[in-house]
Simulated assay, not measured.
Amino acid sequence: MSKGATAAKDPINIVHQSAILEETIKKEQRHQKLYTTYSVNPFRKMYTLTGKPNSTHDSADGEEDDNFLKIIHRAHQEPVKKYTFPQTEAQEIGWMSKPLIPQDREDRRLHFPRQNSEITKYMDAAWRMKEQQENLQ
């Protein structure tokens, strides 16, 4: 067939379209799972509402849902405490926050403490005296 013949297509067959739709629906139902475990979204900000003024079933010491509290506390943890490895590429930066080389102040190869010579000690004292004199005026 040539390109001109594609313009004169066969008309749409309703039976075939219905069979395709039926097969699609069956496939969706086969893989569909009914979700019945509902809870509060832990990533949303919580707004607590007070009970009605004259209701007797709302008490000040209401019972706490331990599962809900566990979910909320887990949602507010740092990613390092929640997961064993980074979940995104951006989390890889800074994931291992423990230094590779432990800090040893006695190791002279890595630790260079500030050292003052006689000149720097003299200049520190001179600057302090100059600042004190300016503050007194």
Rank of each mutant, 00 (worst) to 15 (best):
K45D: 12
S97A: 07
E92Y: 02
H73L: 14
E64T: 15
K9Q: 04
E92S: 03
R108A: 07
Q87H: 05
Y122A: 08
Q115A: 07
V40A: 09
K27Y: 06
M96E: 11
E78K: 01
G62F: 15
K45F: 03
T24P: 12
L21P: 14
H31G: 06
D66L: 13
H31S: 04
N116C: 12
K81L: 07
T24Y: 15
I20V: 05
T84N: 03
N41C: 01
Y47L: 05
P53D: 03
A125T: 05
E22A: 14
N54V: 04
P102S: 09
Q17C: 13
K70G: 09
E28S: 06
N67W: 08
P11I: 04
F85K: 10
T36I: 01
E64M: 14
A7H: 02
Q103R: 04
I101N: 12
H111N: 06
L110E: 04
H57V: 12
A8W: 14
N13L: 01
I25D: 12
Y35D: 08
F85D: 03
A8M: 13
T6P: 06
P86A: 04
G94I: 00
K52F: 15
F68P: 13
S97M: 10
F43N: 07
T48I: 03
L21G: 13
K33H: 02
Q87L: 02
V80P: 08
P11F: 03
N116P: 13
S18P: 00
E118M: 08
R30D: 08
N67R: 15
L34T: 04
D66Q: 12
E92V: 00
A90H: 14
I93A: 03
